[in-house]
Computed example of a mutant assay.
Amino acid sequence: MEFGTAEKILWEKLGDWKIMALASCEDDYPMVRNISAIMYDGKIWFKTDRNFRKTQQLIANPRVALCWNGVQMEGLAEICGLVVEEPGRVFEKKYREYLWQSYNRYSHEDTEILVCVEPRFVEIWDEDEDRNAFQIFLDFNQETAEKKMYDVEEEG
């Protein structure tokens, strides 16, 4: 499978926004929590309070994992400053459009930071039209992709 084809499948599955599980770890202490994620520019973006434990973990160890409905992603998180300081305020506009209630309730201009996650390795679980399960593996560092059928009986 070509990398570009697999990458297109990834972003189509994730769409514009999702509630995703984010795993981070510091000093062998892992944590998982849900985040409201917005997808654009080939990255996963979310906001959080700069005073949260999550933020301190991301600063100490930017290696994270994200998961949503069969899409498992490993990546690197980057703190991108305050949400209101992003050039063009793209995240803020999309967040308001897709997650209005959360935007309205949890927007604190002076403490809300923007985090982006750049994918490094992705595993997608899916099935074909005959309900045969398969996996797609995307390696963003090598720009390679592989599709493997899962649990398909061999003919012969």
Score class of each variant (00 low, 15 high):
residue 17 W to D: 05
residue 17 W to I: 00
residue 18 K to Q: 10
residue 19 I to Y: 00
residue 21 A to K: 00
residue 22 L to E: 11
residue 22 L to N: 08
residue 23 A to R: 01
residue 25 C to Q: 03
residue 26 E to S: 15
residue 27 D to M: 04
residue 29 Y to E: 11
residue 33 R to Y: 07
residue 34 N to F: 14
residue 35 I to Q: 05
residue 35 I to R: 07
residue 36 S to G: 06
residue 40 Y to H: 06
residue 41 D to G: 12
residue 41 D to K: 13
residue 41 D to Q: 09
residue 42 G to N: 02
residue 43 K to E: 05
residue 43 K to T: 12
residue 45 W to K: 10
residue 47 K to Q: 07
residue 49 D to M: 08
residue 49 D to S: 15
residue 51 N to Q: 13
residue 53 R to C: 04
residue 55 T to V: 10
residue 56 Q to T: 12
residue 56 Q to H: 15
residue 57 Q to G: 06
residue 59 I to G: 07
residue 60 A to M: 07
residue 60 A to S: 15
residue 64 V to R: 01
residue 65 A to R: 03
residue 69 N to K: 13
residue 70 G to K: 14
residue 70 G to D: 13
residue 72 Q to M: 06
residue 74 E to T: 06
residue 75 G to M: 09
residue 78 E to R: 07
residue 80 C to V: 06
residue 81 G to C: 08
residue 81 G to I: 10
residue 82 L to E: 04
residue 82 L to I: 06
residue 83 V to K: 04
residue 85 E to M: 07
residue 86 E to Q: 07
residue 86 E to Y: 02
residue 87 P to D: 15
residue 88 G to F: 01
residue 88 G to L: 09
residue 89 R to P: 03
residue 89 R to W: 00
residue 90 V to L: 13
residue 92 E to W: 02
residue 97 E to T: 15
residue 99 L to A: 08
residue 100 W to M: 13
residue 101 Q to W: 05
residue 103 Y to W: 09
residue 104 N to C: 11
residue 105 R to K: 10
residue 108 H to D: 08
residue 111 T to D: 10
residue 111 T to R: 01
residue 112 E to Y: 07
residue 112 E to C: 13
residue 112 E to L: 06
